[in-house]
């Protein structure tokens, strides 16, 4: 009986969210070029890393202490960074624009859709996009010979987990923003994360005090997780990274859904 109600609740929720996704698909169809061009960007980056920086740097220390080529080291970090950027931009700039300027959600909420439907739909759409880009990125990595292990398949769900973690926190942040100037702060926060999360070189390059600080960076956990998967250095320590990201997703999600409810239905 209870299970029946639960299933009914989930399916109605799901169908509500799917209609929000349908709207985003319609918009994407109108701007297909923008969507498709997103697949080209990682190719440029991976190429520059491979023929450019890779040849300047040579080999670096991998997660297991052994040497790996620089390109195989940096490529998974770029995948993680693009998962972070995609989720954060979508949830901050995207949501802020739709909520404050487009008044899009006001129109949606005048229909049987609920704020939960809207939030789930937007997160779902952001994740579908993230999935598409992550798959494309992995394909390029495989073609360029930058993937060392079949565990790499799990890098795609790992990127999705990152999307949930950063998307939820981004959405929570977006509900506190009042103007476009506040969005500059988002950029200001993302850049150091991008540069100092063991993205472009191993942790041992940093002084010891900075190494500790780096471990607080949420991107660091995403990078470390995805890098270990594509390089095939698997160990129980990876679960720690997973737990960190999952905790971000849960806390961000709770704050975001409370704040959204208050703001959308005053």
């Amino acid at each position: 009986m209870l299970t029946g109600q639960l299933i009914a609740a989930v399916t109605t929720r799901g169908s509500g969210a799917s209609r929000v996704i349908e709207r985003d698909l319609l918009v994407t169809r109108n701007n297909l070029m923008v969507f498709v061009s997103g697949f080209v960007e990682p190719v440029f980056y991976l190429f520059a890393i491979d023929v450019g920086l890779g040849r300047l740097v040579g080999d670096v220390t991998g997660p297991d202490g052994g040497p790996v080529s620089y390109a195989a080291f940096a490529a998974p970090a770029l995948l993680a960074a693009s998962a972070m950027n995609g989720a954060v931009y979508e949830s901050t700039f995207g949501i802020f624009f739709k909520m404050r300027w487009g008044k899009l959600y006001d129109a949606m909420l005048a229909t049987p859709l609920t704020p939960t439907d809207v939030a789930l739909g937007e997160i779902g759409w952001s994740q579908l996009r993230g999935l598409a880009y992550a798959c494309a990125f992995m394909t390029v990595m495989v073609v360029m010979g930058l993937v060392a292990s079949p565990w790499a398949v799990l890098a795609i769900p790992a990127a999705i987990l990152m999307g949930f973690a950063f998307g939820a926190v981004g959405m929570a942040v977006a509900t506190f923003m009042r103007s476009w100037v506040d969005l500059d702060m988002v950029n200001l926060a993302l850049l150091p994360l991008f540069l100092f999360s063991a993205t472009f070189y191993p942790l041992d390059v940093y002084p010891r005090s900075l190494q500790m600080l780096t471990q607080l960076s949420p991107l660091y956990h995403g990078v470390a997780l995805i890098r270990s998967l594509t390089l095939g250095t698997i160990g129980p320590g990876l679960l720690l990274h997973v737990a960190f990201l999952a905790a971000m997703a849960v806390v961000g999600g709770i704050v975001a859904s409370r704040r959204l409810h208050e703001q959308l239905l005053p």
């Binding site: 300047l56 740097v57 040579g58 620089y70 070189y201």
Partner: peptide, 11 residues
Amino acid sequence: GLGSLVDRGAR
């Protein structure tokens, strides 16, 4: 940071 790796090989 990255420079310390590049300069190692003096390329």
